[in-house]
Nucleic acid binder design. Structure first.
Lengths: 207, 207
DNA sequence: CTAATCTTGTGAAATGATTCACAAGGCCCG
DNA sequence: CGGGCCTTGTGAATCATTTCACAAGATTAG
């Protein structure tokens, strides 16, 4: 299939959120304009986004809410459950381990790791923190699909290298560090301080 | 000034990180190629990014690390301290309140709010959780610049409305909800489940 | 059945971002 | 001091994304 822009995938996720909330209200159909209003975009953008994957709408009427919901979940790969391993059980790692939003959307936290003996053995919402030395060996048995990195920035790259070698193909990094992954491994970063700096720029520039 | 793309500002933040680490090592100058290698981009991109704000380099030599560091900090509005208020003291809010990365980069957590009596009064790294009912009235006295939203998704929009009315012009939202801010208010969202869904898409599509 | 009204799907146009390519400037060595 | 070697700064070209605009399909009302 042709390459799809990340911005398109991001919007599909948003549409899905909205569709799910509309489904709960029992709405049967929805137009591209309605979907656009939520996402802060335009109806043409919505139709173009969907058109990359086929044509799911009915002219004159709009989209079937249940059918489009199902189709987007399928496109995003959300039919299945994804098994997530968190590395780092500090403030951020612990908060992620207990975050409801992951479970709700089909991401199951299979294990949490740390190096600190004071943290190892503690339970976070039913998941016991394990010794990071066993991480590499455990990954296959855990059937882990995705690794979340929540360790100090100087330790982050070595985690990427280790889990990539162990066959992990998806990594979401929360450490404020610029990391590099080998080809075939998808690495994304969420950098909270950096997001604040973008706000800082905007506030300072608009003065 | 001409409008600057968000992707450019994002990269400037990354360059700054790298420059600061090079400064500690005492390096005097750096080339666009070196900066590019870190950010996973190209030397032309680095030069173009910087060229929007002036010309700071020396042909044949590169950029002065201290001078470029200072200049980027200035561009991003980071010479001053920004006062941040966190709304919501649940798992995520508490983790954000204690996050080192903010303090390190000049963002000072001035106050934390919650509605839950069980949380109000507790201390998070020296900041006492306050009653959310006093939020609107407190904001001016706190001289808050930026609000971080870490409340349940259904409560998030009303926080945006309240703090915008109180004069806040920068908001960073961590709730998985599509929010809308009035004109003149900069609103960004960090949606952790959505980042996982983008990974999910990539993993499912590459099969 | 026809007319009026919606709303999709999609080429084409417009806009935006990145990459290319090279002249110009500055350093260093002999 | 002159030649060789780097590296910047920047128009122009390429590539990507968004917006426009409209034909075509589908519904509803009379």
């Amino acid at each position: 299939m042709k390459h799809i822009a990340e911005s398109t995938v991001r919007r599909l996720s948003l549409y899905l959120r909205f569709l799910e909330s509309q489904m709960q209200r029992g709405l049967e159909t929805i137009s591209s304009g309605d979907l656009a209003a939520l996402g802060g975009t335009t109806s043409a953008q919505v139709r173009k986004d969907l058109s990359f994957f086929g044509s799911f709408g009915t002219r004159g009427l709009g989209y079937s809410v249940p059918a489009l919901t199902r189709r987007i979940r399928e496109i995003l790969g959300l039919e299945r459950e994804w098994r997530v391993v968190i590395v780092g059980a500090g403030k951020i790692g612990a908060a992620l381990a207990q975050y409801e939003g992951f479970r709700e959307r089909g991401f199951r936290v299979a294990a949490v790791y740390d190096v600190d003996p004071a943290r190892i053995g503690k339970s976070l919402d039913g998941v016991v923190v394990r010794d990071q030395r066993t991480l590499d060996a455990d990954l296959a048995a855990l059937q882990a699909d995705i690794v979340l990195i929540a360790v100090p920035p100087e330790a982050a790259q070595s985690i990427v290298d280790r889990v990539a070698r162990a066959g992990i193909r998806g990594i979401l990094n929360f450490a404020p560090a610029a990391l590099h992954a080998p080809p075939g491994v998808m690495l994304r970063s969420v950098d909270m301080a950096l997001e604040l700096e973008i706000l800082s720029y905007a506030l300072a520039a608009s003065k």
